[in-house]
């Protein structure tokens, strides 16, 4: 690891990635600073370390953060397009840009809970959830695959959807 510790500038031994609201932040720490901030404390979660970091460092970290996911991988439609037209590009956009879309729907609709008719044709589950009969199972598998492939932005999005749907 060639990066330097964000706190003291010594060669980093620990790399922490945290994803919040589709934004990925990377922090590098030397072993001393990592210990100082609770990284090796068995009671401390790795993900909580960022809470201990000073405001000055947060802004430094933001320079490293990635842009949020802005487009649908199925059709190429972007949030910028949505903001221009008020329409989405395809049905997959709702899943691909789930956080943004669900907030938009919350503002426009009575609630985000579907209470309408159950389609007469029961093939929907397989069509819409990659062959999985259960949405939760489908999302959990997608989360596992995203983590395995180190696609942390996707993982965060899927995690948020799981939380929104199943608590």
């Amino acid at each position: 690891m060639n990066c330097k510790c964000h706190f003291c500038g010594k060669p980093a031994a620990v790399h922490v990635t945290q994803v919040i609201n589709d934004s990925m932040q990377n922090v590098y720490l030397c072993s001393n600073c990592a210990q100082k901030h609770g990284m090796f404390d068995p009671d401390s979660s790795h993900l909580s370390i960022l809470k201990n970091i000073s405001g000055a460092l947060v802004s430094k970290m933001q320079a490293f953060s990635f842009s949020p996911i802005l487009s649908c991988s199925k059709c190429g439609f972007s949030l910028a397009d949505y903001k221009e037209t008020g329409l989405v590009g395809c049905s997959a956009c709702y899943l691909e840009m789930y956080d943004f879309m669900i907030k938009t729907i919350e503002n426009l609709q009575k609630s985000t809970e579907y209470l309408g008719k159950v389609p007469s044709n029961m093939n929907y589950k397989s069509l819409n959830h990659n062959g999985k009969a259960d949405l939760r199972e489908s999302l959990e598998e997608a989360l596992r695959v995203a983590i395995d492939e180190e696609r942390y932005e996707d993982a965060a999005r899927i995690r948020d959807r799981l939380r929104a749907s199943f608590g």
Binding site: Y94, T112, E113, P119, M122, Y124, N128
Partner: peptide, 13 residues
């Protein structure tokens, strides 16, 4: 409905 409508269990059509 031929089972090919865009539908999601959570947010509907």
């Amino acid at each position: 409905d031929g089972g090919d409508f865009a539908f999601d269990e959570k947010i509907g059509y």
